[in-house]
Amino acid sequence: MATFNVYLNFTGNTEEAFNFYKEVFGGEFVMVQRFKDTPHGDQMSDEDKEKMMHIALPLGNITLMGTDALEGFGPALTFGTNFSPSVSPESMEETEKIFAGISAGGTVQQPLEKMFWGAYYGQCTDKFGVQWMVNFEIKE
């Protein structure tokens, strides 16, 4: 089966966002590439050269990846409305820890609670405008 990953686009704070995600979920970056490291990096402003071209953080069976979507490099960015990464923790304790971490400084749309489909579920928008779903399958 194919591997599914999540790619997040930011408008200049990708590094800050990914350091936050690393703090919440753990792990180590497997790729960090700045625009200055690309073939055309020498043609960019000093500020843009330091932005993230690509960053990758393995999380379980997926890799969370991101970039700084620089102005003029494609359509304008709309935060958090075109996807919702979904996290499936392995325990109730891990679910609460992840949800508390990812929602810190953000907005909770659905507090964690037992749902009709048999899961302990919550939904929030993190402090970077990304919508997250946390879904622990309760096995009885």
Rank of each mutant, 00 (worst) to 15 (best):
A2T: 13
A2Y: 07
T3S: 14
T3C: 09
F4N: 09
N5T: 14
V6N: 10
V6S: 13
Y7I: 02
L8I: 14
T14V: 05
T14Y: 09
E15R: 15
A17G: 02
F18W: 04
F18H: 08
N19Y: 11
E23R: 11
G26W: 08
G27V: 06
E28I: 09
E28L: 14
M31C: 06
M31S: 11
Q33L: 11
T38G: 12
T38C: 10
P39R: 04
P39T: 04
H40P: 00
Q43V: 01
Q43I: 01
Q43S: 11
D46N: 11
D48M: 10
D48I: 05
K49N: 02
E50W: 06
E50Y: 12
E50L: 12
K51A: 05
M52D: 02
M53P: 00
I55N: 14
A56C: 08
A56L: 07
L57H: 10
N61K: 14
L64C: 02
M65H: 04
G66R: 07
D68H: 06
D68G: 12
A69L: 09
L70F: 00
E71A: 15
G72T: 14
P75E: 06
P75M: 03
A76F: 03
L77P: 00
T81E: 14
N82A: 08
S86C: 14
S86T: 13
V87L: 15
S88L: 05
S88H: 11
S88M: 12
P89H: 13
E90W: 00
S91G: 05
E93V: 07
E93P: 00
T95D: 04
K97G: 00
I102C: 03
I102V: 14
I102L: 09
S103P: 00
G106T: 09
V108F: 07
V108A: 10
V108T: 14
Q110F: 04
Q110L: 10
P111N: 04
L112H: 08
E113W: 00
K114T: 15
M115E: 12
F116S: 05
F116T: 03
W117A: 03
G118A: 11
A119N: 08
A119H: 02
Y120H: 15
G122W: 02
G122H: 02
G122N: 02
Q123N: 14
D126V: 06
K127Q: 14
K127P: 01
Q131C: 10
Q131F: 01
W132K: 07
V134I: 15
V134G: 12
V134K: 12
N135E: 03
N135I: 02
N135C: 08
E137M: 10
E140L: 05
E140P: 10
